[in-house]
């Protein structure tokens, strides 16, 4: 949801390029606090390590849930309903006596699946669009095409992920599938902008001019020179987009427009806990905690990676 050019270089750049639609810093824009500044190397590493640990924790929860969970997620136990933490139920049980830890583990699957599919859609469509927009703009015949592509991108930005997902839920049945696709489509402009600004930087470099002089075709230049050089920025954007997907899925499931019963999802756990807030607040806090940990993990990972990959950061560090 944000791009590279700084807002002060207004010319043809849109001032909004600096931010993603959801208000999170665009990859590469956010001179993320401290990272890369004098003595900032250590903190950047810390971001990446803490982020990677949190992400790994969520991935582990999901993977282990395929082999083992403390209970069956649909095992109803009326006697053991609404219990607090205990040896038998480390995180307690819900209104049907279902084990909360089991549900948290299953919920991690949906969270990761939605993130993977949504980010996959956005990355595979948005990145080529951004590269093409930058490459064709190099040629006299392609200036208008590049402009049209980026204007279309801007129009898509007027549809935030949540709005697009609600529209999809109206048009199709509410469910995990439409939610993933909607969140993915809404994330396309972010990737397109990052890829475009990265490509424009690469195209201005000496080795690309050398490749052009030796008559390399535009597609060959894009694949051989551009792709490897913007991969880092795209990965950063993917990490940030993943965090947004996690939030969007949780929000949609909370509204009843995402993952449907009986599939366990963190957003729906939070929603179902609403009626017991005064008596059993922990029912809301556990899914809330894991949503927050997942978002924090991917955001921190993105920050740490940005410090590694963003050329601007390199300059700063030097």
């Amino acid at each position: 949801m944000n791009e590279n050019p700084s807002p002060t270089s207004a010319g043809e750049t849109n001032p909004r390029d600096a931010v993603r639609a959801d208000g999170m810093p665009a990859a590469g824009t956010t001179r993320t606090p401290a990272t890369g500044r004098r003595g900032g190397g250590l903190r950047a590493n810390a971001s990446m390590i803490i982020g990677a640990i949190l992400v790994l924790l969520i991935v582990l929860l999901a993977l282990v849930s395929f082999v083992w969970t403390p209970y069956d997620p649909s095992a109803v136990d009326p006697v053991a309903r609404l219990q607090s933490s205990s040896l038998e139920h480390p995180l307690g049980t819900d209104k049907f006596g279902r084990d909360t830890l089991t549900w948290v583990m299953y919920g991690a699957r949906i969270t990761l699946m939605v993130g993977l599919v949504a980010v996959g859609i956005a990355l595979l469509i948005g990145t080529p669009i951004g590269i093409i927009a930058a490459v064709v703009a190099q040629y006299p015949w392609g200036v208008w095409l590049g402009a049209v592509i980026m204007r279309a991108n801007d129009i898509l930005l007027a549809f935030p992920a949540l709005l697009l997902a609600i529209i999809f839920a109206a048009v199709y049945q509410p469910g995990t599938g439409p939610a993933m696709v909607a969140v993915g489509i809404a994330a396309i402009p972010g990737f397109a902008r990052v890829a475009r600004s990265g490509t424009m930087q690469v195209l201005g470099s000496e080795y690309v001019r050398a490749a052009k002089a030796s008559n390399r075709s535009a597609p060959a230049i894009a694949v051989v020179h551009v792709l490897p050089n913007i991969a880092g920025m795209v990965i950063v954007q993917a990490s940030v987009a993943f965090a947004i997907s996690v939030l969007a899925e949780a929000g949609l499931s909370f509204l009843g427009l995402g993952t449907q019963a009986p599939v366990p999802s963190w957003g729906r756990m939070l929603q179902e806990s609403q009626q017991f807030l005064s008596t059993h607040p922990e029912l809301a806090l556990w899914p809330g905690l894991f949503i927050a940990l997942a978002v924090l993990g991917f955001n921190l990972l993105g920050d740490g990676l940005r410090d590694r990959f963003d050329p601007k950061m390199e300059v700063r560090r030097g």
Binding site: A250, L270, P281, G288, V295
Partner: peptide
């Protein structure tokens, strides 16, 4: 950084 990770609906519940 932590505040960014807390969804507004979790903040509301708390």
């Amino acid at each position: 950084q932590i505040g960014i990770a807390v969804p507004n609906f979790l903040a509301a519940v708390i």
